[in-house]
C-alpha cells in the first residue's frame, strides 16, 4: 500500500473510500502556485484516454474535491508527489 506525508502548513488532504472510488478533499493553504500545480495534474488526467480515472471538482477558496478510481489511486498519489505537493511517498 502506498502511504504519503505532506506539509500541513501548505496543504490539507483528507481521503475516504466511497464505493469503487477514493474521494479526496484537498485544501491548498499556500500561494497560487500550488493551485497551478494541482491544475497541471488535472490537465494530465483529463488529457489521457480514460475519462473517469481522476475527476476534479473545483470549489472557491482553493478547495478541491477529487474522485479517484481505485485502480488509479497510485497514479494520482504519484502525480501529487511528482508535482511536489507531497513530501514523501513509500510502500508499506
Amino acid at each position: 500500500m502506498l502511504t504519503y506525508t505532506y506539509d500541513q502548513r501548505i496543504i490539507s488532504i483528507q481521503e475516504k473510500a466511497n464505493e469503487a472510488d477514493i474521494e479526496f478533499q484537498i485544501e491548498l493553504l499556500g500561494d497560487n502556485k500550488l493551485d497551478a500545480k494541482l491544475k497541471d495534474i488535472q490537465h494530465e488526467f483529463e488529457e489521457n484516454a480514460v475519462l473517469t480515472d481522476v475527476l476534479f471538482y473545483v470549489y472557491p477558496n482553493h478547495k478541491y474535491h477529487i474522485i479517484v478510481r481505485q485502480d488509479f489511486y497510485n497514479d494520482f498519489i504519484l502525480a501529487l508527489m511528482k508535482h511536489r505537493l507531497l513530501l514523501r511517498v513509500e510502500w508499506k
Binding site: E19, D21, E46, L51, T52, L55, Y57, H65, I67
Partner: peptide, 13 residues
C-alpha cells in the same frame, strides 16, 4: 459533452 457528463454524474453518484 461526454467527459462533463461523466464528471457530473459521478459527483451525483
Amino acid at each position: 459533452m461526454v467527459p462533463v457528463t461523466f464528471s457530473i454524474t459521478r459527483q451525483l453518484r
